[in-house]
Amino acid sequence: MAAGAPDGASSKSDIYAGNGPRLMLPVWVFIGLFLLLPVALMGVYSFLTKEFRGGVIWDFTLTAYDQFFLDRGLFGDDPAKIEWTYIGIFWRSIWQAGMATIMCLLIGFPTAWFIATRDAKTRSIWLFLITIPYWVNLLIRTVSMKFLIRDTGPLNEFLMWSGVINEPLGLINTNFAVQLGLFYSYLPFMVLPIYAAVERYDFSLSEAAADLYANVWTILRLVILPVVKPGIIAGCILVFVPSLGAFLAPDLLGGAKTFMIGSLIEEQFKGNAGNWPFGAAASMILLSIVMAVLLIYARSQTKGDK
């Protein structure tokens, strides 16, 4: 048996030798079919001419990008200026997603820390509890949040009953409500990666730092944070990216008064506008921003490794 083990290993490597590309085939087919092809299609569509009421005409043009970046007035014949409308919509979305990410981090980090410092048995129960809301559809959870915080909802009624406030808080249909909805939707995406990082943390390092007269904040800043940083960054990306394209929370909690990136794109395909190339162009621009953020992150990681 002792002699058999190396034999078995070598015969295994014989099986796989030279088969690498073939074994990668399913992955490449999957990525090609479900990721690269749709993105390429979207890229092509963004350069086509729009057909009235949806659809495209196969004439290549830059009109969609022109519409995004240049303002030619309500009737399209003013001299071209920089178009702030869509940049403003993107900026608002980035700000909302950023606020949601910060809220997630503020609540998610202590939560993850708390879970990771329990004993092994209770830990799995806490993690399980975190995932339970995910058994329910995102739409239902967002509507429930709306019921909770509306002016006539239980939150306001309780606060008014208990005399804390005299008037409803007026939370619904505000930017804060949108951030709250995004925060609630994506909190576990922050908790789980941070938990994974904290779980690996060697607590004797904190003790060693404390023995060397470091106070709590110094330990957190110089010892803990560098170790769990990858988890925090992963969590932030996992919350920020889906928040950026969200349209359920802005529609239901924000009252759909202002476009976010997601609802702007949706309007191009589902709404009266029916401007598919413009929707595709906005999607491509969004994709580029996300890619840029991820690339910067990846580069900073490889630099850190050196």
Partner: peptide, 17 residues
């Protein structure tokens, strides 16, 4: 018609920007 609809679309986008 299309040439008019684009103006109504522009007003709508303007309203929600």
């Amino acid at each position: 018609p299309e040439e008019v609809q684009v103006m109504y679309d522009a007003i709508w986008t303007n309203l929600k920007k």
